[in-house]
């Protein structure tokens, strides 16, 4: 953020500083940290903050992407570009068992696909890397159950979140100590809202995948949700064909599970304006949550972010 003569920091500057402090605390306190990178806008902000925290050093821990093999093609290209431009130590993990079993969102549904290719895959990667801290981009404003999440969230040796074993966090003093096998999930942008993320992306000129901007894209509409036909693996229902629509995505994930919205917002200011005017919650377009009520809480206890 730019230097100013004001004697207090703007809220974005304050949030940025807080996040940077958290990143540095992780680097200084843990043996083997790793940063989760999901390529979305929150991950883009996370990456930008990590680079700021350690500049002029490069980001001093690897960046981990759990590839379900069903991400938008553009996401993968964007990921590789970021890794190249910022000299990141990029790790990509796919659940080999799920891959061998041919798990996919069409045949197995969002719940099974997400559990096997995302939750289990994440656990595999964290175990294999023996990471003691995994940095994620979750925010407290995303969902009711996250309003109480710690910034340093303790996980037992099975990566499970034990609500009774969470430590009070006072001031900016974080208790980072772990017993062998335990780990910490760390959320540097806990106190950011979705609007903060967008305005920060705007203010800092942070690159994000083009999927966030409205473009003509091939889609099919299923029970009110617009699914983009991103590759030849898409399963059309009988009589179904793709049609071009001006859409953008509010959250990015596996393309068959990501609902787009009709929009003309083709640049950042338009997106922010549209978002401010929109009256539906962010996760609406994320099909993961629609399988069961309270599913986010359940996924968190299982080790999903």
């Amino acid at each position: 953020m730019s230097q100013s003569s004001r004697r207090t920091l703007s809220h974005l500057h304050a949030l940025e500083s807080e996040s940077i402090e958290i990143f540095r605390e992780v680097a200084a306190s843990f043996e083997r940290p790793v940063m989760m990178y999901s390529i979305g806008k929150d991950s883009s902000v996370l990456l930008h903050l990590a680079r700021k925290a350690f500049f002029p050093s490069r980001v001093p821990f690897p960046v981990l992407h759990i590839d379900t093999k069903w991400k938008f093609r553009e996401m993968i290209a964007f990921r590789d570009r970021m890794a190249r431009e910022h000299d990141l130590d990029l790790l990509v993990h796919t659940n080999p068992d799920g891959l061998a079993a041919g798990i996919n969102p069409f045949d197995h549904g969002s719940a099974v696909h997400t559990d096997v290719m995302k939750t289990q895959a994440l656990r595999q990667a964290l175990n294999a890397g023996k990471y003691d801290a995994a940095i994620g981009g979750a925010r407290r404003d995303e969902e009711k159950s996250r309003a109480k999440e710690r910034i340093f969230s303790h996980r037992n040796a099975q990566h499970a979140w034990d609500p009774k074993n969470q430590r009070p966090e006072l001031w900016r003093i974080f208790n980072t100590r772990l017993a062998p096998g335990e780990s910490m999930r760390v959320f540097p942008i806990s106190n950011w809202t979705e609007l903060d993320v967008w305005t920060y992306i705007y203010a800092e000129g942070i690159p994000i995948p083009d999927l966030y901007f409205a473009r003509k894209r091939p889609v099919v509409e299923r029970s009110g949700t617009l699914i983009m036909v991103d590759d030849e693996r898409f399963r059309f229902n009988p009589g179904e064909t793709a049609r071009e629509e001006m859409i953008r995505f509010r959250t990015l994930g596996c393309y068959p599970l990501s609902g787009g919205i009709r929009s003309d917002a083709a640049d950042l200011p338009s997106i922010i304006m549209e978002m401010q005017a929109s009256r539906t919650s962010e996760r609406e377009g994320r099909l993961i949550d629609s399988d069961s009520v309270g599913s986010m809480e359940k996924k968190k206890q299982e080790g999903y972010f």
Binding site: S10, H11, L12, Y202, A203, P269
Partner: peptide, 14 residues
Amino acid sequence: ALETWLAEQTGKSL
């Protein structure tokens, strides 16, 4: 106008 509004957003205190 968008720029002005966004500038206000980024300049808010906490």
